[in-house]
Design a protein around this nucleic acid. Structure first.
Lengths: 225, 225
DNA sequence: GTTGCGGCTATTGTATACAAAAGCGCACGC
DNA sequence: GCGTGCGCTTTTGTATACAATAGCCGCAAC
């Protein structure tokens, strides 16, 4: 694994965006463990901006439940137990299932072609003798983003953005072996078929199953508890 | 109807909270029609605070899609067409259905008693010769809040808070006649039965139906289009 | 030894000043 | 007359200064 702080954040973004990305990176990388206080001034020093954009970033992280507020108004890194993770997957399954159903109704030919291309790339990443995990994850994220875009619901996009998924996807997929990756790509293929047939309920069912399988892959891969 | 700016916001709240409540009130009351620009300084003058808490409030309103951002970064009041409203109800039906299912599993005896009391108050408000709409709405809101609390999911609570509901509920219920109110109370009664039986799927189904009926009541009451 | 009070400090909330950028209008040229 | 480019104005983004409040530590009294 290359790089230092997770995803490459283009330095051209606003200070608030950089603060958001960087602070979230600290949480996801485990540098800020659950319960760690998130103090505005300290974070401002780390990111190299003033408190104002940091406050902005913290409000977003709080809304997405990366951070929780103590009675006194201080923010600390949230602690997700296994039940929270199950709940996150359950909500994702519902909402992405709904997104898939909407997408089935609205899918254009060019969007469908994009999905096919994307999934071909995912299959290629999965098929290599030594699976390209990073490529798989990037493709997977893009696939789900394309479906979300095709669903054409700003509200769904907003809600799913807050449904922190990447950390979990990453922690799960690193334990995938090649057959798991191939199965995931196969499910994407089913989804594409459902889209091509414009069958909303088929698409919803496939997406729901896809995500719920990911939940159990995660649970199986989890150390214990 | 008494009061001036909608719900009584206790003046003791923080400046940011007051700004949020007041600006949202402007939008819901129709003083700020769709497309109206939301300029920070102007709003700061109206609310009587500085731009800082106003910015805070606007970020929340943006996250909840009361406002949308123009390409240049300016905020304007969002315009919800009928499809948006249908989508809001569909999402509420899913999420509140899920909340009801969770609540059925977790419901305590005292929570159940509270729900019964609450629904008794709703029935009383609905049964009066001249129905007490305000009382019905307050009771209805409390009922749904109790269910949400019983579901014990911070994530659900956060997501549903953003699913702007009150304006719609209000616009619908003012057109309810007494039989509609009574039917709503009856559905709450069914929900209580499902909770008492700890039947998750029953609770989910009743709640889903309850909200989807509200959607159609809203559509029937809508002027046209 | 424990518990309650008091003052101090750390941290967030709010206001204001300044910088950057986007929109708008006007004028000029074709 | 219409299009285009430049500069002014409005508006948001960021930094910093100040106010208020919550938490903490120590001391003392029971």
């Amino acid at each position: 694994m290359p790089g230092k702080s997770a995803s490459a954040s283009s330095a051209a973004a606003s200070a608030a965006d950089r603060a958001y990305t960087e602070i979230r990176g600290l949480i996801l990388a485990g540098d800020a463990t659950p319960g760690t206080p998130l103090r505005e001034e300290a974070l401002a020093d780390i990111v190299g901006v003033s408190r104002t954009p940091v406050r902005d970033a913290l409000r977003r992280l709080e809304a997405e439940l990366y951070a929780v507020r103590t009675p006194g108004g201080r923010l600390v890194v949230a602690d997700w137990n296994i039940d929270d993770v199950v709940e996150i997957f359950a909500l994702r399954a519902m909402l992405e299932g709904h997104a898939a159903a909407r997408a089935a109704r609205r899918m254009t030919a060019s969007q469908l072609a994009e999905l096919r291309d994307c999934n071909a790339a995912i299959e290629a990443a999965a098929a290599r003798p030594e699976p390209d995990i990073a490529g798989f994850l990037a493709g997977n994220r893009r696939f789900h983003d394309l479906v979300l875009a095709a669903s054409a619901s700003a509200r769904l996009s907003t809600m799913l953005a807050g449904l922190v998924e990447q950390p979990i996807v990453r922690r799960t997929a690193t334990r995938y072996d090649r057959s798991d990756l191939a199965r995931s790509a196969h499910e994407h293929g089913q989804l594409i078929q459902a889209f091509a047939a414009r069958d909303e309920e088929w698409a919803r069912a496939v997406m729901t199953a896809h995500i719920r399988r990911a939940l159990h892959a995660f649970q199986d891969a989890s150390p214990s508890k």
